[in-house]
Design a protein around this nucleic acid. Structure first.
Lengths: 211, 211
DNA sequence: GTCTATAGGAGGATAGAC
DNA sequence: GTCTATCCTCCTATAGAC
């Protein structure tokens, strides 16, 4: 049982992700997977101990995917915060693009379907997707406050306020695409969110207006 | 086959909602349901044609639940908008309380689990949960703009910006509760969101600061 | 490593007695 | 309406030939 990169193993993972994200983990059978991979049902067990192991492998892969690391910059060494609004715009764009990469879209759907049933996925979501991104965002906003680019307030709360609509709009786009509906109006929400958010936090010439 | 309100039928629905929301539709068996209802497995079929019919019945019930009608006021005859921030605060509270009513929490979990697999639920979510609430909110904000309580901008976009964090925070609370984690910090997000949102849209004495 | 065959079990649904 | 018993399908997983 070679656990390394056999083409068949890779194909099994790819097909499984697709099917799990479409029909759910329970709703997908080993026969479904085998059929779409192009091997016979028993053959899967040469690569994985069982269905559960396929899911666990996918979850591990997820940890290293773009879905979880929305911010490719490092908040420690960053001059990123000095760019102000454009950094936020880039984050929003990264978020938006996730919905348009088939693999990331499938990972997102898988995550959302199993998050209410699978403790591992829930922890992964919470620690890596939510906490980590919000903390990075929070650190970024904090630096902007120090530089007096934006007005001073609770950076963690602001990070949540910036993050949560992006998450929601992404979900909207994914749902719309499932039914073949137009996503054009939903897609504009990402940019508009950045505009509104920035307007509400920026410190321009007239400083002491809010708070 | 009496389709009316038999106690057993009611119990079946109640138990099914609980189990579906915990283990998913596919993950729940008729035997699970029967066991928890306290009847024997075949007995369910005296009340429902099958598992699918139970789900459909629950979906129909959902349409009349508090989960979908977050706004119990009518936007037509309303003087509600004149209350300004306090209306928004009430909506946020309604949202928050959903997570703490066991039935609504279960409906929310069921909705979120099946929304990626079940077209009916997806339509229900989109038309009744999302669209309807955002439109009502949008109408409310529009009236506030006319009364010059808040600054003028795209009301539909603002409605989205108000709605989406509430949805997200609700999901957070539900997820935290599943693992018995503390929800106290998540719960404060609802009120803080209203504060931040209101600060960013209100038109107080100093008007022409933003935009 | 993939095939065929099959074990072994779980799940949905029905029939008929009470 | 509920019980017991049963059917049949579908599923995961394994065994053994190639």
């Amino acid at each position: 049982m070679e656990k390394k990169e056999s083409p068949t193993r890779k194909k099994i993972l790819e097909v499984s992700l697709k099917l799990f994200s479409e029909k759910g983990f329970k709703g997908t059978t080993m026969r479904d997977i085998a059929a779409e991979v192009g091997i016979h049902q028993g053959g899967i067990y040469n690569h994985f101990k069982g269905k559960e192991e396929i899911l666990q492998t996918l979850i591990n892969d997820m940890m290293h995917s773009a879905l979880l690391s929305l911010f490719d910059f490092n908040e420690e060494d960053g001059e990123y915060h000095k760019k102000g609004k454009s950094v936020l715009a880039r984050i929003a764009t990264t978020f938006k693009l996730i919905s348009f990469d088939p693999r990331n879209e499938a990972l997102f759907r898988l995550m959302m379907q199993e998050i209410f049933r699978n403790r591992t996925i829930r922890d992964l979501y919470y620690e890596h997707f939510y906490q980590q991104n919000v903390k990075k965002l929070s650190a970024l906003l904090f630096k902007m406050m120090q530089e007096e680019m934006i007005r001073s307030s609770d950076p963690l709360m602001l990070a949540n306020e910036f993050f949560s609509p992006l998450f929601f709009y992404q979900m909207q786009v994914v749902l719309l695409k499932m039914d073949g509906k137009s996503t054009s109006s939903a897609v504009t929400l990402f940019e508009k969110h950045v505009d509104i958010f920035w307007e509400s936090i920026k410190l321009s010439s007239n400083s002491a207006t809010l708070f």
